[in-house]
Simulated scan of single mutants.
Amino acid sequence: MTPTPPTVLTFAATDPSGGAGLQADILALASIGCHPLSVVTGITVQDTVGVESVMALDSDWINDQARTILEDVQVSAFKLGLLGSVENIAVIAEIMADYPDVPLLIDPILTSGRGDELANEEMQAAMTELLFPQATLITPNSIEARRLAFYDEGDEVQNTSLEEAAQRLLELGTEYVLITGTHERSTDVVNSLYGTSPSGASGLIRAYHWERLAGSYHGSGCTLTSAIAACLAHGLSMEEAIQEAQEYTWQTLKNAFRPGMGQFIPDRFFWARDDDTDADEKVPFIQH
């Protein structure tokens, strides 16, 4: 029989534009040689400009979707995106608790690229209290990191340092925090990985510098977190997975296209459309 590729289960809401959400996860996972499994958490009305509305699925449907596939297929990693409701977060936390040895990666989506609110304060509290303590890695952008770390302290968090935010998030129980720096005022984009050293001290592990590309992109966060999950599923260490996934994501943004009137969409299969590469040499990005 043909060997089964690594499987990654994503919990996310749909995106009709294919830029973010469930569709983005599936494209990125498949591009990196994984078999994507999916649980639909909600249905969105959106385009490349922004999100008009979200309908969260009933939590019983979330539970049934996940439990059914997990009884059938062995999963190498979990990836969480837009979860839709407090009830969904609670039931997903219960499911994750039954699989403590499987890496859990969380892209804590709070707003759309346009700024549409996608997670209220109750959902933020539920994520930090129920899911973050079980997480292997969370990947907030700098705005999300400050909001989630100090969600109960009001607007003053805007001036909080990223180091303080990362420390608070680590104290919640997550093993690693990768804060992306797209929203920071810096010449290049600096993504910062925080965690606990072998000595027990927590703090910055490594800062990654990337050329800042022009334009606004729809689904870059979904792509990055899914790519890290895919790399972990292939057996890479966390730091190796984060490095490879950032390179992959940067390439998807460099080769992004604009199918509508809004943001650019990352090309998750950029490697398959490289005209300078012979057809026989076109292979998935991650090499084994």
Score class of each variant (00 low, 15 high):
residue 55 M to D: 00
residue 70 L to R: 00
residue 87 E to P: 04
residue 68 T to W: 11
residue 61 W to E: 02
residue 72 D to G: 11
residue 82 L to P: 02
residue 69 I to P: 04
residue 66 A to F: 07
residue 62 I to A: 11
residue 86 V to K: 07
residue 77 A to Q: 01
residue 67 R to E: 13
residue 59 S to E: 14
residue 61 W to A: 07
residue 72 D to V: 10
residue 50 G to A: 15
residue 81 G to F: 13
residue 91 V to E: 11
residue 83 L to W: 00
residue 70 L to Q: 03
residue 91 V to R: 03
residue 81 G to H: 09
residue 78 F to C: 08
residue 71 E to I: 03
residue 65 Q to F: 12
residue 80 L to C: 14
residue 62 I to K: 02
residue 53 S to D: 13
residue 64 D to F: 12
residue 86 V to W: 01
residue 68 T to L: 15
residue 54 V to T: 04
residue 86 V to S: 05
residue 66 A to G: 08
residue 91 V to S: 10
residue 82 L to Q: 01
residue 58 D to A: 14
residue 50 G to W: 02
residue 86 V to M: 09
residue 68 T to A: 15
residue 91 V to T: 15
residue 89 I to F: 05
residue 83 L to D: 07
residue 86 V to D: 02
residue 88 N to D: 06
residue 82 L to R: 01
residue 52 E to I: 12
residue 66 A to D: 00
residue 52 E to G: 06
residue 64 D to H: 10
residue 72 D to A: 11
residue 48 T to K: 02
residue 57 L to N: 01
residue 76 S to H: 14
residue 68 T to E: 14
residue 85 S to L: 04
residue 82 L to S: 02
residue 91 V to G: 07
residue 77 A to D: 00
residue 48 T to H: 04
residue 90 A to N: 10
residue 92 I to W: 07
residue 49 V to Y: 06
residue 58 D to V: 10
residue 46 Q to T: 10
residue 81 G to P: 12
residue 90 A to E: 15
residue 78 F to Q: 09
residue 72 D to K: 06
residue 60 D to I: 04
residue 73 V to S: 01
residue 87 E to A: 15
residue 54 V to G: 05
residue 68 T to P: 13
residue 50 G to F: 10
residue 51 V to N: 04
residue 57 L to M: 14
residue 55 M to V: 06
residue 64 D to Q: 12
residue 48 T to F: 14
residue 69 I to S: 04
residue 78 F to G: 03
residue 52 E to Y: 05
residue 89 I to T: 08
residue 63 N to A: 14
residue 56 A to Q: 05
residue 75 V to G: 09
residue 45 V to F: 06
residue 92 I to L: 12
residue 78 F to A: 09
